[in-house]
Amino acid sequence: MTDKDIIRLVKDTYDVNPGVKGRSFIREHTKRKIHLSSIIMMQLKELNPLTIIITICISFMGVLLTFIKNYSSSIWVCSSIMPLAALIITADLGRSKRHQMTELEMVTRFSLRMQKSVRIFIGGMLGLIIHALIIPFLSIKSGIAPCISVLALGCPYLFTSWGCMLITRKYHNTESIYGCTAIAMSAAIIPIMVKTLLSQFNKGLLATIGAVILASLFVAITTEIRKYLQEDRNTTWNLN
């Protein structure tokens, strides 16, 4: 084999397709126009009705609790029910994998990553709505400072969301839901413990610790969301 042959062979093997035919194909093919709003609507439509019902119930229950006069524990009860909302919302994020729809959804116009991002956005919005409904009522009716409400409601909510996302990413089987439930139940107990600690420790110190935990949970959940969005390529599929 001459040098010329080797150069040609290497060129044939490693050269990127010039894309001349690709350009002609693109000219012939009319790209269907779709807006981001349509995928948000589509994913909203596919949202489990139970998720919406439970979200509404939790919001309603939280608001109702603040109306009970002289009930100082309302913030802790609200805090204890937040993990349930987080559990329901996060469980819905893994529905593609749970129902073996991943491959079908990956070969559509919207990449699975895009669809997952929209689901996270919807889940985030639902969480935000719950918080935005309960916190002002806690402030007005029970006189609790909004920053304390954010800590008390946000920590168990974010902890459960992070834990559930971690478990569903690591374990793809339906049994992972048991792990998620265990996390939510643990998170629901934490507010009761904090309430007990309040009488023994300095409130300022506990608030500072709470703020540090909340910040750490924000970092943890951001990292988890990034990992969740990245997992749709190169999965090992049936060779696991």
Binding site: N17, K21, Q100
Partner: peptide
């Protein structure tokens, strides 16, 4: 036809029936 598989336009012209699929 010179169009990379990662291009969303490629997915527009693709139909796929996986071995195992759910609903």
């Amino acid at each position: 036809d010179g169009l990379n598989v990662e291009d969303e336009m490629y997915r527009d012209v693709l139909g796929y029936l996986p071995q195992d699929f759910g609903y």
